[in-house]
Write a protein that binds this DNA or RNA. Structure first.
Length: 834
RNA sequence: GCCCCGGUAGCCCAACGGCAGAGGCGAUGGUCUCAAACACCAUUCAGUGUGGGUUCGAAUCCCACCCGGGGCACCA
């Protein structure tokens, strides 16, 4: 902040002229009043229609920042609009309060993670209140409270009973820095989503949610969400789920009972399969390899393991691999094809093995070229040369050749259908669908999370902690005890981890992992419906009344994380009979981020903008107006492009109106200046439409217009006593209550009313005021404007055409040329073609 | 490589296929002031990334390309 600006605002505050708007005094004045009135507490039993406004709950790291300010300011426009429109609005807030930052802070400061967590929650809570968001604080929750995570554990056990939570040994993503495993969704470009460290693989036995059981439904329902969800989220989820249709095909191996099963999307090219490739790191490779070739495979695996995931992601690396020494039988033509192992085939997608058709898959062709394997074209694509000579694989439609019964078929769909029928008849394959989505790995080797309520008993195996013993609370650990060691810190808490088996009473051990914090956030929006409920995670009747959330405002970074998991939980709970809806969020709005000088704010760049400083200098309302007015909600806001000082000026202009009105409160507006009344009516009507289509920036612009028009009416028009001026000023206060609650409340009081303006209701509009007395019709010749006519709004097309053709300027512009065509769109336009 | 989203005055952004400008920022001039700040008034500026097409008429619809942002990517 420049010295000058700081100086200026101080002067404004201390100005002896009482006419100046004192930002701080107004905030201090209304906050306790609102606290007392508590206008935003949602009533479950209200007869009014219900709306559920949801925004992504924050993680309690430090105080609120610009990002929180933006998302909640945008969100609050909708919530407050709904209240004004007469809905009963549920607008809750809570904290996603388990997680690594608190744990890392605890290690640093030798304290308990709860200390950091709950201190920050209090700070953020106070900041939110001052920021004037219309949250219903009576529903506040924290996912780290035992009363909350008791139900997270309950849900885990219920999911397990349904076969949707299970343990398996598998290669998993491991973050060497945070010393914990990660879900697929938390690995971004081979790096840990949280800390950026390169992710490695480990073979571990871990807990998974069987989200893949819902892959098809998660995909199908996206069609219904498409109209009301951001396109990028829908696309991201579709890509992530990654459905492909194809076939499983079995290749028999001599001397082995089990055939090698492959997944392919192109079973129609089966006659061109000249070799097979198994993922080098899959168990299958080790099983298949001959003793002779085993040293070669192991040497290759050593090389592969040296490569990080980052290296593996490079698409242009040369193909490598090793022959396993065995052959398999192509089921359609009986050919013996060699089986290779390579790292370009992924162990955990499909079956971990592929049939290689080098002529029609570029990756297979590159491999064939590297190892001098045969290439056989089976689809003759018109206009493309034989891949065996060009080394460019073809994948389009063409005529099948060298393909037995397929020969002569000319389209892919028929080819695929025909070959699948044959495979199914022979018992060597089946049509199938494959998904890219993997099961959700939920175990974490860290302390500050929900303990997994399972006891491992030598005799009984996995035993669930009985429901009546929930919550299974965390042991008290702090400081150095929490240091990551590669196993959960809970494992070292001897008193906690050693228990008697709940089933047989023998000594046993608790599961020492905690749950991914995304489990906590997969159902918090349900808990808000009945936050104190003690007989289950939520009251089924209350959830029925409020769900689904009508709007969910939050960041797009959760496109395939939280938003996918929450959808999965909702579907499972629906199947459990606890929810009527199968989708949690009816509509969604993703806000952009606040940047500065073209770059993300960061400590290293030194371009951070402190929310606290901005609020201190310009006040809550001006900051909120700045964020809402900056542009469309989805766009990023560059703080260097916006002007909180300008927003404050606007608010002061608006506020001044309320002091200028001289008519008494309650004066009927009828009979007031019609021109101003029309502007007011039009603004109210448009504002509703603009809010409903999330064009909040335009809505603010329209309020600015109304303020300008009212100013003009007071100074040079109808005058301060005109009832239309009062109507306009009151409308400004109501519209501003969506964005600038303090100024709006202050205006409302100065206009002679009781608080709170936030719930006075949306202004009624006399439809007669929306009908224009006359409109300007434009007359174009060859699409160029040549004349303007003032006409009645209900003028007929014939009359308008006649009027236009008779206009002196038009006659002159036509200049005697013959009129070939006249397009009339009454009452606004006439286009004459000559 | 494939798929989304966007490109409009000096800047941020508006504009049912119909007058390119709603609003703001900035700049300039004026009123007020001893002067300045604040406030108020006024003025200022683009033909919509490029090239085609559809249309009576295109910022808007279609095609290609360029630029910026994002998603997916050795997924068989």
């Amino acid at each position: 902040m420049s010295q000058q600006e700081t100086h200026r605002s101080e002067q404004t505050d201390q100005s002896p002229e009482a006419a100046a708007y004192d930002v701080r005094a107004v905030q201090d004045k209304w906050l306790p009043v609102w606290e007392r009135l508590n206008p935003f507490q949602a009533d479950d039993d209200s007869p009014r229609e219900k709306k559920y406004a949801l925004t992504m709950f924050p993680y309690p790291s430090g105080d609120l920042h610009m990002g929180h300010a933006e998302v909640t300011a945008l969100h609050d426009v909708i919530a407050r609009y709904w209240w004004q429109r007469g809905y009963e609005v549920l607008n809750p807030m809570g904290w996603d309060s388990f997680g690594l930052p608190a744990e890392n802070a605890a290690i640093r400061n030798d304290e308990h993670p709860a200390t950091y967590t709950y201190a920050n929650i209090e700070t953020q809570y106070e900041s939110f209140k001052r920021y004037g968001i219309s949250f219903d604080w009576s529903r506040r929750l924290h996912t780290s409270d035992p009363e909350y995570y008791r139900w997270t554990q309950w849900l885990f056990l219920k999911f397990r009973e349904r076969g949707l939570a299970y343990r398996k040994s598998s290669p998993v993503n491991w973050c060497p820095n945070d010393q914990t495993v990660l879900a697929n969704e938390q690995v971004v470009d081979g790096r840990c989503e949280r800390c950026g460290a390169e992710v490695t693989k480990r073979e571990l036995t871990q807990w998974y949610f069987k989200i893949t059981d819902y892959a098809q439904e998660l995909l199908d329902c996206l069609d219904d969400l498409e109209p009301t969800w951001p396109a990028r989220v829908v696309t991201a989820q579709r890509n992530w789920i990654g459905r492909s249709e194809g076939a499983h095909v079995d290749f028999a191996v001599e001397g082995r009972d089990e055939p090698i099963r492959v997944f392919t999307t192109r079973p129609d090219t089966l006659y061109g399969a000249t070799f097979m490739v198994v993922a080098a790191d899959a168990k299958l490779a080790a099983e298949l390899v001959t003793d002779e070739q085993r040293p070669a495979l192991e040497a290759y695996l050593d090389d592969v393991r040296k490569e990080s995931d980052i290296d593996r992601l490079a698409t242009d690396r040369p193909k490598t691999g090793v022959f396993l020494g065995v052959h398999a039988t192509n089921p359609v033509n009986g050919e013996q094809v060699p089986v290779w192992a390579s790292d370009y085939v992924l162990a955990d997608y499909g079956t971990g093995a592929i049939m290689a058709v080098p002529a029609h898959d570029q990756r297979d062709l590159d491999f064939a070229k590297a190892f001098d394997l045969p290439v056989r074209m089976v689809v003759d694509v018109p206009g493309e040369d034989d891949p065996a000579t060009t080394y460019v694989a073809t994948s389009g439609d063409g005529t099948y050749v060298n393909s037995g019964p397929l020969d002569g078929i000319t389209d892919k769909a028929t080819g695929i259908r025909t070959i699948i029928e044959q495979l199914e008849a022979d018992g060597t394959g089946t049509g199938t669908v494959n998904f890219r989505l993997r099961d959700w790995l939920l175990s974490r080797q860290r302390y500050w999370g929900v303990p997994i309520p399972i006891v491992h008993c030598d005799a009984c195996g996995e035993v669930a902690v009985p429901y009546d013993q929930l919550p299974l609370e965390l042991p008290e650990l702090r400081g150095a005890d929490l240091k990551p060691k590669g196993v959960s810190p809970l494992a070292a808490a001897e008193d906690w981890v050693n228990v008697d088996c709940p089933q047989c009473g023998a000594p046993a051990k608790r599961d020492s992992d905690t749950m991914d914090t995304f489990v906590d956030s997969s159902w918090y929006f349900l808990r808000y419906c009945s936050p104190g409920y003690e007989d289950g995670p939520f009251d089924v009747e209350k959830a029925k009344a409020w769900m689904p959330a009508d709007i969910y405002v939050g960041g797009v970074e959760h496109a395939v994380l939280h938003l996918l998991y929450a959808r999965f939980f909702t579907k499972v709970l629906a199947d459990m009979g606890m929810l009527e809806v199968r989708e949690p969020f009816a509509a969604q709005l993703n806000q952009g981020i606040v940047i500065n000088q073209g770059k993300k704010m960061s400590k290293s760049l030194g371009n951070g903008v402190s929310l606290g400083d901005q609020l201190a200098e310009f006040g809550v309302d001006a900051v909120r107006v700045t964020l809402v007015f900056a542009g469309p909600p989805e766009d990023d806001i560059d703080w260097a492009d916006v002007s909180p000082a300008g927003a404050l000026r606007f608010l002061q202009r608006a506020w001044r109106l309320s002091g200028d009105v001289t008519s008494a409160a309650g004066t009927p507006a009828a009979g007031g200046d019609v021109a101003l009344r029309r502007i007011t009516a039009r603004t109210v009507t448009d504002a509703a439409e603009l809010v409903e289509s999330y064009r909040f920036n335009v809505m603010v612009a329209r309020v600015m217009e109304l303020v300008n028009a009212t100013r003009k009416a007071i100074d040079t028009g109808a005058g301060p006593a005109d009832p239309a001026v009062r109507e306009a000023a009151e409308t400004v206060a109501i519209l501003l209550s969506l964005v600038a609650p303090y100024v709006a409340e202050e205006m409302w009081e100065r206009l002679g009313h009781e608080p709170t303006v936030a719930k006075v209701g949306w202004p009624e509009v006399d439809p007669a005021l929306l009908v224009e007395e006359s409109v300007t019709a434009i007359v174009q010749i060859q699409g160029k404007v040549r004349a303007r006519l003032e006409v009645a709004p209900d003028i007929s097309e014939a009359d308008l055409e006649q009027l236009a053709l008779a206009d002196a300027g038009v006659v002159k512009a036509i200049d005697g040329r013959p009129v070939r065509k006249v397009i009339v769109k009454a009452p606004k336009l006439v286009n004459i073609v000559v």
